[in-house]
Amino acid sequence: MSAYGPAAEEVRTTALRTGTRALDWLHRNHVQGTFADGATAELAEPDSVYKPLAELSLAASLVMRDAAFPAAQRDTAGELLDFAWDQLRGGDLLYERQLRFPAMTDPLETYVHFHRAGYRHERLQELLAHLASLTSYREYEHVPNRRMAVANATRVVGGADPTDWPARTAATWLGSTPEPWTMDWMTAYHVTHTVFHLTDWGAQPHALPPHLRDYLATWLPVWTDVWAEIEEWDLVAELVIVDACMPQPAFEPDAWRRLAAAQHDDGLLPRDGRTGGDGDGRRFEDHYHTAVVATVAASLVLSRLGA
């Protein structure tokens, strides 16, 4: 038993079971996220296959990085990364897209997950290093937490990172610790992503400044409770990740209990309580994101709780 006590033991067991089933579901269904033949750098519909591939790679790369799942799940993650890398033609698609659209940041933000897991594309890496040196590339007008995504990816890929992180953080909604009751659905995702990028997905919990730790420690339980009640499972799982990114996670068992109860027998975790029925023809498209988030949440929680 860990130093966290019996509640954390329950979280460990539930996270392992729920996360394993989510990851296995992703693995069984991942071929649904395959490019049509001849996908080019333009990607007329980037959200259809490209974005899911990037998010699949994120989850798999964190399973590899955290090494907290058993070996079988790490093998599964490895297979998913191989599949996605293959879909991206060994990184060529990202390279071509970055050449064609120098101002776009998604090639970097996709490549970073493969880089984290040891994959390399040298020519792309050269482009990214050059872009990272440009003031322009850092200052394109994204919303503040998107800028942090670019800065974190640059940091992980190993480019020079002149980012003023405190200033970047202060520019986000979370950075000014606003009235917690004004939180809305979209802002909640902005907050979770601010924390993900600031802490590099939980790798640097102490990158969270103390005033944000206090703020999150006070209000995360409320936001989690509010959205768990109305069964917004995708958001609840994201908030669970935020907890796991904190220097002292609360490891509340209740959110995990509810996520586990919402998970279907086949491992599908519906994004919310209104969808995910058996007659749902778009099961992968609609729910892959929640499987990704649940996998990441489980990986981080298991990692933070210790083997």
Binding site: M183, T218, W219, P221, V222, W223, V226
Partner: peptide, 14 residues
Amino acid sequence: VRALSRGATRSLMR
């Protein structure tokens, strides 16, 4: 007072 602050926030959000 912290528990009640949380409860008030929860009710406001609901």
